[in-house]
Design a binder for these strands. Structure first.
Length: 1028
RNA sequence: GCCGGGGUGGCGGAAUUGGUAGACGCGACGGACUUAAAAUCCGUUGAACUUAUACUUCGUGAGGGUUCGAGUCCCUCCCUCGGCACCA
């Protein structure tokens, strides 16, 4: 037999598998279907690096194993080929993107085939093929021709939209257009000045362009928008129905960022009561504020403002803090400002500020380290609707126009940003939530005891000449408190007087002065064991006192019988104190005032005092609704999807712009709208797509009125084609439908979808959105497209850095395959570590995999020289191990634990090698287990078995559970939990027998010595632990 | 700052989910083969102590706790990676 020549056998089998089409999936089969999917590659000019292969190989192993386990497996491949890199490369090299794409695909196909994945090439798709993007455009038209029915909570055809009465034709169109799931809107978009393209929110990373890293700018443009926010709730809720990695689910939930709260209306009054200058802003308010996701937009008319005064609408998650609102803030872009101009006394200053913040880049604006800035709108005031108080209105860029209503109510006592701002500009800070500490431990409120209410003061006392503080240790009493001095405030006393009295009584020191009050109001409820009553304490402040000298009078016993006073150094205090409220006071004493942002109990809130945050929120919200001053609202961080791109290499948006009819969709029969061939596809400086320059293509007749019209020249983002491609694999050649209903019913959902974490908030979310639309319109049969989502870890360069062309640390699979072969590469990629983890590439470790395959090859040689049928005697210990390995490999593949599966194959190979002879039968079984990982060598060695059918069409072995059980075990004997002896014993040894053996052991006797054996623990089949 | 993952030999990593820590592989050291080297094969390889592969002690980021027994569970802290970040 010859040497292991990986190159030769790999080429041989790749060709043969191709010819035989053994990996093609059947549409419809008696077998159970299994649809596994990797994210289809973007064929760039750089080619694949080893990291790209990791998921391909992993899912290939799953596919192969499933196939051998009797499933009808579909493992398809295709090309996500529209997009900027290709266009940029085309411009640079003056080659048409079509040609560039074709070449790249050719190169990628070659690369992919060289590591032997079992893709079904007969289903290959390409997003830039008009036959494919016809359906991408078709889905866009579905979005355009649908509206979201809030009541049924689903999308419906736009024809079914119920129109308000008495609308003229123009109004009807406006109304309809505003309800379409795809709509065009003038808006500030993220703009990359380098790529000259609009970016979706998700494509802006740290305020820079995801692709080229240039700082993103804002640009006002008319853009196509998809209303993904209509699906926000369902995109969260339906995560319950799928099996995604938890981190994927949390990332999506966080990205959607749902928060519940209320919209509150603050009327605005102008100080100079000039009627003409009072703007009627009601209409502007409804149209201008960009709250596409807040319910207030729909049916806003029910919330009529008082009189005709302008209204500021704010969104808050803490309506319970309304009484603490001491100012309101508008984002600098807020349209209301313009309407209020006539009332603003410092208009120049305001305009200057707006201009400044407009010029600031997002990077500057969102820099958390920078100080807050803002300008008060002098001459006008807002009215706090809960207490009619006049409060100042500010504009400040810490308020984002794009979130909520673009305006906030500021509650500095309970919000960090408002607090910082109020401190800087000297605005009132009013506490309306008191922290509430309810003892849940030993000093829990007891139902059978009397409840007592009282006002209490805590006293921090500083030593007369050292940096030490007087604390109390209550271990004498039944309370295990560690506190400062504290006590009740008596009638007629103020807090300071009470503090001094308590300080003298309990410490004994006589000469002191009050320095300051610290902190705010706190409530606590607990059982006071030393008095045998429940206490409901109200603490208004903590009082800080410094001793002047050491004059001392021994305290009366009644004051100190429950505790000992001790002096502690400043740094010791924090760890000593064990009551939460005292920790708060101490913390404020140490590092200054802080807002209290958590939940608590309402104070200074009129009739609502005493309510918990939770109760208050509910009550105030219904109060607001009753009084038409606000309503419940839900907000999302998720924005609608900006869908326009001003580029050539993308799907043309199938819309015609007609002066008379507005945006008119193409008819289905006119799809695909093909990209015109052009010479010049460079982006334009105006931000318009290069298509705009092609008059022949742009000038068309309106499909509706046949009048003069122009084509939409924006193209789709490259997330479009990938949002539904898994459906096309199901029926890739269908030219009547994107896929036939029968095929969809058979194949959907995708059983296993693997992809990178970087797509969690982009592609994965977008495609779930599109799928739900198709579901609502009855084109697909599943609510969710993917049953299971898993993620591969990145392969890093040897230096632990990300692999990238610019760093020059890319490992090219072609070179690895050339030197060591595809099977070695495949094994190494799977063996290097847990599939989900990022792991640095290490070429020296790769050698181990090559050795492993060489040894397997050499085992075949050994078989050829030994008797044809070996005697079981000489291989007797292998059978059990083989069955254990079958179990391990089977389960590990199912759980994507490829590294340990390979390790168990190595253990089996090592054992087989050690034997005098190698059993042919066991070796064959071993080859089958190996075949998903190293398909070429397994197939080659299988062929030598004189088997006619490919190894990849063999049945996956099953293990015999009886055979796996260990009959003899090494029983561990511990003394006090430490390993002291090991005894060989039968696996089902009885407890008594085991204990007897353990106690008889000489070693154990030594360890027990003359100590008393208190207890013996027995774990069946494992250990005995003697407690002495 | 918030959310999520992680921290185990020289390195990549195992560990039956609370029961022999370090499987498997790389590297290193020693040996065999060879004129020699590579390749291959055999042996050793957590640390300390030691003539010793004996015995013992220590050892899974740090400290504390629960338990007969903790890499695994609980608390506090440190470090690191990923995501989000003035989201009201």
């Amino acid at each position: 037999m010859k040497k292991y020549n990986c190159k030769k056998i790999e080429k041989k089998w790749q060709d043969r598998w191709d010819e035989n089409g053994i990996y093609q999936a059947d549409d419809f089969s008696k077998k159970k279907k299994y649809y596994c999917l990797i994210e289809f590659p973007y064929p760039s000019g750089t080619g694949l690096h080893v990291g790209h292969l990791r998921s391909h190989i992993a899912i290939d192993i799953v596919a192969r194993k499933k196939r051998m386990s009797g499933y009808n497996v579909m493992y398809p491949i295709g090309w996500d080929a529209f997009g900027l890199p290709t266009e940029n490369f085309a411009i640079k090299t003056k080659t048409h993107p079509k040609i560039v794409t074709k070449n790249n695909i050719k190169n990628y196909t070659h690369q992919i085939k060289s590591y032997g994945p079992s893709f079904d090439w007969s289903r290959e798709i390409n997003t830039t093929d008009p036959k494919y993007y016809k359906w991408t455009q078709w889905i866009f038209l579905k979005l355009f021709n649908s509206f979201y029915d809030e009541k049924l909570d689903k999308a419906r055809p736009i024809e079914e939209l119920r129109m308000p009465k008495k609308l003229d034709e123009f109004e009807k169109r406006k109304y309809t257009d505003s309800h379409r799931l795809a709509y065009k809107k003038e808006m500030a978009i993220n703009w990359c000045p380098s790529c000259k393209i609009g970016l979706a929110n998700e494509e802006v990373i740290n305020s820079t362009c995801e692709r080229c890293g240039a700082p993103a700018e804002k640009k006002i443009m008319k853009q196509w928008i998809l209303k993904i926010t209509k699906y926000a709730d369902r995109l969260i809720k339906d995560l319950d129905t799928v099996d995604y990695l938890d981190k994927i689910k949390t990332q999506q939930v966080n990205w959607i960022g749902r928060s519940e709260g209320a919209i509150v209306k603050f009327p605005v009054i102008l100080r100079r009561h000039n009627k003409e200058s009072r703007a009627n802003t009601q209409n502007d308010l409804n149209n201008g504020i960009n709250t596409p996701t807040t319910p207030s937009q729909d049916g806003n008319s029910s919330l009529s403002a008082r009189n005709d005064s302008p209204i500021i609408e704010v969104f808050t998650t803490r309506p319970d803090t309304l009484f603490g609102c001491t100012y309101v803030v508008l984002a600098p872009e807020h349209p209301l400002i313009k309407n209020l101009e006539s009332g603003i006394e410092n208009l120049e200053e305001v305009k200057e500020y707006i201009k400044e913040s407009k010029n600031k880049s997002d990077l500057d604006r969102t820099d958390l380290a920078k100080e807050k800035s803002g300008v008060e709108l002098k001459g006008i005031k807002a009215i706090n609707p809960v207490n009619q108080e006049e409060i100042p209105i500010w504009i400040a860029d810490y308020v984002l126009f794009s979130y909520g209503t673009g305006a906030i109510m500021a509650v500095p006592a309970h919000d960090e940003r408002d607090f910082e701002f109020a401190k800087k500009f000297n605005i009132d800070i009013r506490q309306v939530v008191a922290p509430l500490f309810i003892d849940k431990g030993k000093n829990k409120i007891r139902k059978d005891k009397k409840n007592t209410k009282r006002e209490v003061v805590d006293v921090i006392i500083k030593h007369w000449n050292k940096d030490e503080y007087f604390c109390l240790d209550w271990s004498k009493s039944k309370n295990d408190w560690k506190t400062f001095i504290f006590g009740g405030v008596e009638k007629g006393e103020n807090i300071k007087e009470a503090a001094i009295r308590e300080a003298k009584e309990e410490s004994g020191y006589q000469n002191m002065r009050v320095v300051k009050k610290i902190g705010n109001e706190i409530r606590s409820r607990f059982f006071a064991a030393h008095k045998d009553v429940n206490r409901h304490d109200l603490k208004r402040n903590c009082v800080y006192i410094e001793l002047i000298d050491n004059s001392y009078v021994k305290p009366k016993i009644e004051h100190v019988k429950n505790h000992n006073g001790i002096w502690l150094k400043r740094e010791e205090v924090k760890n000593f104190i064990n009551l939460e409220e005292l920790k708060i006071y101490w913390d404020i004493f140490q590092s200054g005032e802080k807002p209290f942002t958590e939940e608590g109990i309402a104070i200074n809130s009129g009739e609502f005092n005493g309510l918990t945050t939770f109760e208050f929120k509910k009550e105030i919200t219904s109060w607001l609704e009753k009084n038409k001053l606000g309503k419940k609202a839900i907000n999302y961080k998720l924005r609608d999807w900006v869908f326009s791109r001003q580029h050539y290499w993308g799907e043309p948006i199938p819309i015609v712009k007609c002066d008379k009819c507005g945006n008119v969709p193409l008819l289905e029969k006119d799809l695909p709208l093909k990209l015109p061939d052009v010479k010049n596809y460079e982006p334009t400086e105006t931000g318009e797509s290069p298509l705009a320059n092609i008059n022949k293509w742009v000038d068309v007749k309106c499909p509706k009125c046949k009048g003069k019209a122009k084509r939409e020249t924006d193209t789709m983002p490259n997330w479009a084609g990938s949002s539904w491609y898994f459906l096309r694999y199901i029926d890739p050649k269908n030219d009547k439908e994107f896929a036939s209903q029968n095929n969809i019913k058979y194949w959907m959902p995708v059983d296993l979808y693997n992809g990178g974490m970087e797509h969690t908030t982009l592609h994965l979310l977008y495609s779930r959105f599109w799928h739900k639309l198709l579901y609502d319109l009855n084109y697909v049969n599943t609510v969710e497209p993917y049953k299971m989502r898993r993620s591969h870890g990145m392969i890093l360069a040897k230096d632990g850095q990300k692999m990238s062309k610019s760093r020059g640390n890319v490992v090219n699979p072609d070179e690895v395959i050339e030197k060591y072969g595809a099977d070695t590469l495949r094994l190494y990629e799977m063996f290097m570590g847990p599939y989900g983890d990022a792991i640095p590439w290490n070429t020296t470790s790769l050698i181990g995999m090559n050795r492993f395959l060489e040894r397997i090859w050499n085992m075949q040689k050994k078989i050829e020289t030994q008797n044809f049928v070996s005697s079981p005697k000489k291989t007797h210990n292998i059978k059990q191990l083989l069955h254990q390995t079958i179990k391990k490999v089977t389960e590990d593949i199912d759980n994507l634990k490829f590294n340990t599966a390979i390790s168990s194959l190595m253990i089996l190979a090592n054992e087989m090698e050690k034997g005098e002879e190698i059993s042919l039968d066991y070796y064959s079984q071993f080859l089958i287990l190996l075949s998903p990982f190293a398909p070429h060598i397994a197939e080659e060695l299988w062929e030598l078995r004189e088997e006619k059918k490919s190894i990849h069409l063999q049945k996956w072995p099953r293990y015999n559970p009886e055979l796996i059980k260990e009959k003899k075990i090494t029983m561990i004997i511990q003394v006090n939990g430490k390993l002291r002896d090991q005894i060989k014993a039968s696996a089902d040894i009885s407890e008594e027998e085991a204990k007897k053996l353990a106690l008889e052991s000489e070693k154990i006797k030594k360890w027990i010595n003359r100590k008393e054996v208190r207890k013996i623990i027995f774990v069946k089949g494992r250990l005995v632990n003697i407690v002495a």
